[in-house]
Write a protein that binds this DNA or RNA. Structure first.
Lengths: 204, 204
DNA sequence: CGACGGCTGGACTGTCAAGTCCAATCAGCG
DNA sequence: CGCTGATTGGACTTGACAGTCCAGCCGTCG
C-alpha cells in the first residue's frame, strides 16, 4: 500500500524522504518540486518513492502531516511553558529569532502549505485547518493560564484573542517573508501582545 | 519583445489573457497552471501568449502586476474615503462580505502570490513587497486622517498600527480561506480596529 | 538453511508542457 | 490600392515529469 514501512530501516528511509521533500516544497512550492528533485536530494530510487507514498499526492500529504507535527510540537511545547507576560514575550522573541536566522525566508511551513493547497485539495485543506485549530488550542491554553492567574480579565473573550494572535503570527510571517524583514513579524506580535495586556484591565 | 501591444485590439487580447491567467493562477497556483490551461480558457493561440509575454515567467509577472493593481485600486479607493470609525468598520465589513460571497475561497490575491513566489523569484518578490508597502501607505493615510481629526491620540505609533492592521488582514484571510470560515477574518479585523480605538486615549 | 516479504535499483513508457517556427491575416497609413 | 508591422493560427520539437515494471537485495523468522 501507500504507507508501508515496517522495518526500522524502512521508517528511517521514509523519514529521510519526507524531510527532504518538506524542505524542497517549502522552498519551491509543492507543485513545483518534482519527484526527481526529491530523488536527487536524497539519493533514493524512484521505486522507493512509490513504495512509501503511492504517488506524488501521497508524498505531499506526508509532507503536510510532517510539517504540522513539527510546528505543533514546537508550539505546544513552548506555549505550555507560558504562565506570565515575560514567558509570552520570550515565546514571541523565539519566533522572531528563528525567522531572523533564516534571513526571513520560508515563513510558516503550515501557512505556506495552506496558501498553496487550500483551494486545490479538500482533504489536505482539512488537515491544515485542523492544524491551525490545534495551534489555537495551544495558544488558548496559555491565555487561559494567564487569565486564571489574574493576569487577564475574566470577561475577556479568549477565543477572539486567540484568533487574533494566530492571525498576527501568520500575517506577520507573510509580510516578513515578502519584505525579507523579520521586523514585520516583531511588530505584529508586539501588537497582539499589547492587546492582550490591554485586556488585563476590565473593559468599559 | 515581450510586452508588445500597440493596437487597441492587441491591448484587449492581452488584457483578456491576463485576467484569465490571474483567475486560474489564483485557483490552482502559478506553477500548476499551464499555458494550455490559459489557452483553453481564452480561446487564444499559443503564439499569442509568446507574442505578448515572451515566456511563462512573463505571464506570471503580468499577473502579479495585474493583481497588485486591482487590489490596490480597490483598497486605496476605499481607504481614501475613511475619516471616521464607522467608515473604517464599513471598510472591514466590505472585505468580509467579499470573502463571504466567494465561499471563503482564494483569499488575498497578493497574499497568495507572495506566499508562493517570494522564495522563488527575487524580482517578483520585490514587486509584491512594494505592493504591500503601497497598501500600508493607504492604511496609514486613513489612520493619519483619524489622528488629525482627534480620533486617535497624537502619540500613537501609526507605522506600527498600520503593520498590525495589514498583518490582521493577511493572517485573517489565510485562516478564513483555510477553514472556509469568513468569520476568522471578521474576528481578526475587529481586533485590529479595537486596538486602534484603544489608542484613541493617550497611553500610560 | 530456505523462503518470505519488505526494500531497493534503475530502465522504460506515455503524456504533457514549454517553447519554436512559419505562414496567414488584419489594421492602419501614405 | 499597396506596404508595413502587429496579430493570429496551429503544427512541430524537445525535454521533463509522473508513473510502471521487474529483477535483485537483504533482513528475519521458522
Amino acid at each position: 500500500m501507500s504507507t508501508t514501512a515496517s522495518t526500522k530501516q524502512g521508517r528511517e528511509t521514509r523519514e529521510r524522504i519526507v524531510r527532504a521533500a518538506a524542505a524542497l516544497m517549502g522552498q519551491n512550492g509543492a507543485s513545483a518540486t518534482t519527484l526527481d528533485d526529491v530523488r536527487a536530494a536524497t539519493g533514493v530510487s524512484k521505486s522507493q518513492l512509490y513504495h512509501y507514498f503511492g504517488d506524488k499526492r501521497g508524498l505531499v500529504e506526508a509532507v503536510v502531516e510532517h510539517q504540522c507535527a513539527t510546528v505543533l510540537g514546537l508550539q505546544t511545547h513552548a506555549l505550555a511553558a507560558v504562565s506570565s507576560w515575560e514567558d509570552l514575550e520570550r515565546w514571541a522573541d523565539l519566533m522572531v529569532a528563528i525567522v531572523e536566522e533564516q534571513g526571513a525566508r520560508g515563513g510558516c511551513p503550515i501557512g505556506t502549505l495552506a496558501a498553496a493547497l487550500s483551494d486545490v485539495d479538500e482533504e489536505l485543506r482539512t488537515s491544515l485547518s485542523e492544524a491551525f485549530r490545534a495551534w489555537s488550542d495551544a495558544i488558548r491554553g496559555a491565555l487561559t493560564r494567564l487569565r486564571d492567574t489574574g493576569q487577564i480579565s475574566v470577561d475577556a473573550d479568549l477565543d477572539a484573542l486567540t484568533t487574533r494572535m494566530l492571525s498576527a503570527i501568520q500575517g506577520g510571517l507573510l509580510l516578513a517573508k515578502t519584505s525579507r524583514d523579520a521586523n514585520q513579524l516583531r511588530v505584529a506580535l508586539d501588537g497582539a501582545i499589547a492587546q492582550l495586556q490591554a485586556s488585563a484591565r476590565v473593559r468599559h
